[in-house]
Design a protein around this nucleic acid. Sequence first.
DNA 1: AGTGACTCCTGCCCGC
DNA 2: TGCGGGCAGGAGTCAC
Length: 326
Amino acid sequence: MPELPEVEVVRRGLDGWIPGATVETVHVLDERSLRRQQGGPESFRAGLQGLRMTTPCRRGKYLWVPLTHSGPSLGPGRGPATVAENALVVHLGMSGQMLVDTSGEPEQRHLRVRLGLSRIPERPPGSPSSSAPERSVELRFVDQRLFGGLYLDGLVPTDDVAGQTVPATVAHIARDPLDEHFSLEDLHARLRRRRTGIKRALLDQSLVSGIGNIYADEALWRARLHYARPTETLNRTETSRLVEAVQQVMRDALTEGGTSFDSLYVDVNGASGYFDRSLQVYGRAGELCRRCAENGRDTLIRRERFMNRSSAFCPTCQPVPRRARH
DNA sequence: AGTGACTCCTGCCCGC
DNA sequence: TGCGGGCAGGAGTCAC
């Protein structure tokens, strides 16, 4: 399931291909992937066709590509032709993939949207610079469960960093822990004001973004905190420990996700490769806690129903707090 | 303000 | 074998 690291892997993959490309064709195979598009598929097509894509951005699990009007090309690094006012927003949901196709692969089973791009002035890293004719590239949105989607949205200024913009529908999403402007102080203050449990808070994208069920459980285990710990009782040290755990687990996943990343094929399911290797609690119910085992204790990872989903934790490392908040 | 319920979906896995 | 039910989950919306 794509959380921040998976989305960042996709963003980096796209960054090697799409900046400078113009959207030539738009094929919507399944309108349900455009559920969030105002005005439906027609508006989507009209608002996208002929526009030039710039460097993809990300906040939490949201990905977007600012769009500029293509005029006479100034080329990358020579100043934008226009300032981007709109962006193509991508959310991968549960099962979304953004694939770059350069060789006319057969259609994937759950292919929902195809964007034909052309006139790519930049060569992808590592490719031979030659005078060969520029290949056209197709961007494919593949999504099995249809929780994800694409839509166009206007860019609005952020309220904390001058000159920075985000899509209007992403403005309520908090900065994620890998964001250079992420503030530990601010998060700590907001957690202290909340009256809820820590896992619920971690999953609240308006408080801190990018964290889903898997990394929430992993980070809580690393920080030795129980999921029902009341946020208002966290001290500075604990918040700091938790944030470091979140950052660490995300960076680890990013590193490993990066190794299996092929710029031609961004496979979200391929994420299972590193999940298996580095997960400590998620999906390990009934198995031994590795940290306890190192200390000579045999504790089994427990799984409980929580928030209509599952929570995995070690009952020894993460004892239930005296006052629990769910 | 916080929280639960519901919705959107498909595929897989279980038990009968 | 086949069918129904449960489960998985991100996030928006609505009700209390």
